[in-house]
Nucleic acid binder design. Structure first.
Lengths: 106, 106
DNA sequence: TTAATTCATCGTATATTTGCGATAAACAAT
DNA sequence: ATTGTTTATCGCAAATATACGATGAATTAA
């Protein structure tokens, strides 16, 4: 954009937007689902079920990590990812809070 | 991107990603909050409380409309927007579904 | 030690998003 | 009729996101 105005907003709005952005690509939703289904996944397993190159999947994983929605640990040459339930719950609550405000008034 | 791979994914994943994308910018979260607070808003009221040009706000409103998270109606020269609770609830449930799968397995 | 495996990161091309001013379109007020 | 309001859309510039192959770094296997 010409200028970035994202910092003109309130902290909570920025945080919710960051969570939402992490899920704003089907690949990242699919990755979350894949990890959730198996409880935890090594990177290679995710790459196998994804129609994307390994480097691309790795990039999406990084974004999910940055948003805090997943956690990663290294095991030898392999990287193991799991869902960060705490963050996910926080996200879910933020969404519902928006929604509840709405319901209160109609 | 070199190629667009978004259509390689499952319908439900694409839909959730689209909802998430609608909320993936702080301005759009702020707009939702503004509308929810007053129950409904004319466009000009939203522009007033937003640190963005009128044309930019209009663009964000359009994206929220496209995602179905808000509804709009025209009243004279003014445009009135309100939350689409039904869609919002659908979104909330999709998120929770992802989350519940997670909780089931840990 | 050498070769193979696994994965993150870099560089790059292309697509999409964000933001604005200018303008158009529709109505209201004079 | 003319003028002012209100809002959507167009056209553009700049910033980000998406995707890939190539490469590097770390470990494991031979």
């Amino acid at each position: 954009m010409a200028q970035n105005k994202k910092n003109e907003f309130v902290r909570s709005e920025i945080e919710l937007a960051e969570f939402a952005k992490a899920l704003s690509h089907p690949a990242r939703v699919a990755i979350i689902k894949a990890i959730a289904k198996r409880n935890s996944c090594i990177c290679g397993e995710i790459v196998e079920v994804m129609p994307l190159a390994q480097s691309t999947v790795s990039q999406h994983l990084k974004e999910l990590l940055n948003a805090g929605l997943i956690q990663g640990s290294i095991d030898g040459t392999k990287s193991c990812y799991c869902i960060n339930s705490r963050m996910f719950e926080k996200f879910s609550k933020s969404i519902n809070k928006l929604f509840v405000i709405t319901q209160d008034q109609e």
